[in-house]
Amino acid sequence: MLETDRLVLRPLRLADVDAFLALHADDRVNRFVGTYTRDQALVRLETVEKQWADRGHGLFSVHLKTTGEFVGRIGPQFWDEFGEVEMAWTLRAEAWGRGYATEAAQACIDWAFEHLTENYLAAYIHPENAASHRVAQRLGFSVLRHGILFDKPVIVYALNRPTTRA
């Protein structure tokens, strides 16, 4: 579990299926990340749980510290197709514009660089998702390459592991 000033993050799990479905059912959200049927969501959440068990990391569910309300999902996820770990974020539209994505992602980035051996973290962002591009840039990501994810174009950003000074 991770905590920030305003948020609590814990591993995303099968029990989160209803919140996950509601998140992805919103057209404002799924415009860039897609939607899920209940069966697809269960498979996706099983994959997340398996990644936590096998790799020691995966997506977190994001909750407001004051109310416990689910506001999204965020965290490091490994993609076999690319052989790299993506720092992914998707929040409910009602939570946009409040800095939650940046706050939660920074906590996850700090955690990832402390617990994982990756030299960099990637972020796959649809070219038209201006808000996510701004989040990536605020976090220090820079463009690495262009790619395709789930048959959609993405701009792949990278954030290099911080160097330690002696």
Rank of each mutant, 00 (worst) to 15 (best):
A104F: 07
F82L: 13
T90C: 14
Q106W: 13
G83S: 10
A104M: 06
A104Q: 01
E94S: 15
W89V: 12
E94H: 14
V85W: 04
A88E: 11
G97T: 01
F113T: 00
Q106C: 09
I109W: 00
R98E: 15
E86S: 12
G97S: 05
A105E: 07
R92Y: 08
E84G: 15
C108H: 00
G83H: 08
T90P: 04
G83P: 11
C108N: 06
R92T: 12
I109P: 01
G83T: 08
A93G: 07
A104G: 14
M87S: 09
A107P: 03
Y100Q: 04
R92Q: 14
V85M: 12
L91W: 04
L91A: 10
R98F: 13
L91C: 06
T90Q: 14
E94I: 13
A107S: 07
A93M: 07
A112I: 00
T90F: 10
M87R: 03
F113V: 04
G83I: 08
A88D: 07
W111S: 06
D110W: 06
A107V: 04
I109C: 02
G97C: 04
R98T: 14
Q106F: 11
A107E: 04
Y100C: 05
D110T: 11
D110L: 08
W96C: 00
W89Y: 15
V85G: 07
T102I: 11
V85E: 08
A107Q: 02
A93S: 15
A112M: 00
D110V: 10
A95G: 11
E84P: 08
G99N: 01
A88Q: 01
A101V: 09
C108E: 01
A88G: 13
E94M: 14
V85Q: 11
F113K: 00
G83N: 10
A104L: 09
Y100E: 05
A112G: 05
E86W: 03
T90N: 11
T90D: 10
W89I: 11
A93K: 03
G99L: 00
W111P: 05
A112W: 02
T102Q: 12
F82N: 12
T90A: 14
F113I: 03
G99I: 01
W111F: 08
A95M: 12
M87L: 15
F82D: 15
G99M: 06
A95I: 08
G83C: 12
A88S: 13
T90K: 09
F113M: 04
C108Y: 03
C108R: 06
T102D: 12
D110N: 10
T90E: 13
F82A: 14
F113Y: 10
E84R: 14
E84N: 12
R98S: 13
A105W: 03
A101P: 07
Q106K: 14
L91S: 06
G99Q: 01
G83K: 09
A112P: 01
F82G: 15
W111N: 01
R98K: 15
Q106E: 14
A93C: 08
W89G: 03
F82W: 15
A107F: 00
E84M: 13
A88W: 02
